[in-house]
């Protein structure tokens, strides 16, 4: 016989469903007057340090059709590579940058959009530096557990080449699914849920 570890089980995930906007972006869902603003709409202000960028993208299903009911959240470091989180022990992040954003895909075109800044580099646990990246979390009707992925920057060829996580992608042909495209005014990052162009998703 032995002692029990006495751990609880994590609450199992369930899909966010098609009406996720009611709870997470009620103003977008035309439920007004309950919250002043939808959380995560604004990540920067006039004083935020760093290079302003716009990230747009879509979430596409196995037929290449954009989802019009997905919700995307991003989490990233500030321009100096610090996270605006109590768990950040390396220093104080830019108080004028939230690091976190939330955006539903458009009900007509399926496009999500974030006005943010380009993140600085952050260390991997063994001390190597990771390339600049944005962490994404995607939920929608038909997605039973939120999907985690990352967006890297196309102009960071040297940093990307030494990034410990990109280095873990066995099928090198898939690395490109994690790298955004430079477009007029910012970056475009489409997320393919399924098929030949399937984005790399993480179990983190």
């Amino acid at each position: 016989m032995f002692q029990s570890l006495n751990r609880l089980k994590e609450s199992p995930s369930q899909t966010a469903g098609p009406y996720v906007h009611i709870g997470l972006t009620p103003n977008f869902a035309e439920i007004t007057g309950v919250y002043p603003d939808d959380l995560g709409t604004s990540m920067v202000n006039d004083k935020t340090k760093g290079e302003r960028i716009t990230i747009t993208g879509r979430v596409l299903d196995g037929t290449g059709t954009p989802l019009k009911d997905a919700l995307v959240e991003i989490w990233q470091a500030d321009a100096d590579g610090l996270y605006n989180s109590p768990s950040e022990m390396r220093g104080s992040a830019d108080a004028n940058f939230t690091g976190w954003g939330r955006c539903p895909s458009g009900m007509d075109d399926g496009v999500f959009r974030f006005e943010t800044i380009k993140p600085g580099r952050v260390p991997y646990p063994d001390g190597r530096m990771q390339a600049p990246h944005v962490t994404l979390w995607i939920v929608a009707r038909g997605i039973n557990i939120g999907l985690q992925t990352r967006m890297y920057f196309p102009e960071e060829e040297t940093a990307n080449a030494e990034d410990p996580i990109l280095g873990r992608v066995e099928h090198r042909i898939r690395v490109g699914t994690l790298i955004a495209q430079k477009v007029e005014g910012g970056y475009s990052f489409d997320i393919h849920l399924q098929g030949d162009k399937e984005t790399v998703f993480f179990d983190i």
């Binding site: 990771q130 038909g142 998703f201």
Partner: peptide
């Protein structure tokens, strides 16, 4: 659950031990 058929990744997830990008979070 029919909608999951076209919205489910078919390739394996890439497993990682958490980095600071995942062990931190907004408050």
């Amino acid at each position: 659950y029919k909608t999951s058929v076209l919205r489910s990744p078919q390739k394996a997830l890439l497993s990682l031990d958490g980095t600071i990008s995942e062990t931190t979070g907004p408050r």
